[in-house]
């Protein structure tokens, strides 16, 4: 049981929770994830560590409400307990020796892009952060990115925040303007990461993508999180979650990610009914 120390709504469908988890906080590094169950009989879901405070013993998670489990998780409030919270899992992002990096985040993926941006910036690297959102009302962590990057490029699909356009437009612009990166790190929706990787491949820039497939145990037992990387089967939980973006089969990952789409819609509606029964006043998202 882990207590929720702080809960914050970052936008209409994204929530931040700072959770009391001293053992996880002691070891957590950017790029790693935790597995949680919101309640008894709950599903196990992986969430990437968005921040951690070793002294306070807390770990921050940021999640988008997309299905039944995230809906149930979002029903918990400060002072409530998350049933199970285990980690840190997966390998940490490799940052050693990187002098100049572009970090490209999209949507709620920016929650994961932020801790590595911060780490790189704090170890003295030149960090160009590019964040993309559909529109202004979905923006998260703007101040955090601005404070922990050498350059911060804001992109939105409709032009309501920063420049109108895609993150790939911004990245291409920087590269074309002569910026030379040791590495590009990208975290966001699969189509976005796919196109970032296609772009950097053109320029021969090493690119790391952070994958978030369906998982059960998260410890290297069930094999549900398998991906094809460079023609080989890899397990995101123990081999990843970050891989060489030029080798990942993104289309296959996208297809596998939709395995339970029908179930999720149903579970989400069920959770909404549950919520509405509890607080009739608050409309479901």
């Amino acid at each position: 049981m882990n207590r929720i120390l702080r809960k914050e709504r970052l936008n209409s469908s994204v929530t931040l929770m700072e959770v009391d988890a001293p053992l996880v906080a002691r070891k957590a590094e950017p790029g790693q994830f935790i597995i949680l169950r919101a309640d008894e009989d709950g599903e196990r879901i992986p969430l990437t560590v968005a921040d951690f405070d070793r002294e306070k013993g807390s770990v921050t998670i940021i999640f988008q409400i997309v299905g039944g489990t995230t809906k149930r998780l979002d029903m918990l409030n400060e002072g409530d307990y998350i049933r199970d919270f285990a980690g840190p899992l997966g390998r940490a992002t490799h940052t050693e020796g990187l002098k100049k990096v572009a970090v490209v985040g999209g949507g709620v993926g920016c929650a994961i892009a932020y801790p590595v941006t911060k780490k790189l910036f704090e170890q003295g690297a030149e960090v160009h952060a590019i964040a993309g959102f559909r529109s202004h009302d979905l923006v998260i962590l703007e101040n955090e990115f601005a404070a922990h990057s050498t350059r911060f490029l804001r992109m939105s699909d409709d032009g309501s925040w920063g420049e109108k356009g895609l993150v790939t437009d911004a990245l291409r612009g920087l590269i074309e303007a002569g910026e030379r990166y040791d590495e590009v790190i990208t975290i966001g929706p699969l189509p976005m990461m796919k196109f970032v990787c296609l772009l950097t491949k053109e320029y021969g820039i090493k690119t790391i993508a952070s994958m978030n497939p369906i998982m059960i145990d998260g410890t290297g037992m069930c094999g549900g999180c398998r991906l094809t990387v460079g023609g080989e089967t890899k397990f995101a939980c123990v081999d990843g979650p970050e891989f060489d973006g030029h080798l990942i089969d993104f289309d296959e990952a996208a297809s596998r990610g939709r395995m339970y789409a029908g179930f999720e819609r149903h579970a989400y509606e069920e959770a909404c009914r549950l919520l509405n029964a509890k607080e009739a006043s608050e409309p479901c998202l």
Partner: peptide, 24 residues
């Protein structure tokens, strides 16, 4: 530990499980 797969085409399709995952 990790489940073995056969290494044949189509093992990443939706509806293919390891026994570990299915049973878990």
């Amino acid at each position: 530990g990790l489940p073995n797969f056969m290494g044949i085409p189509g093992e990443a399709l939706k509806g293919v499980y390891s026994a570990n995952e299915f049973l878990t």
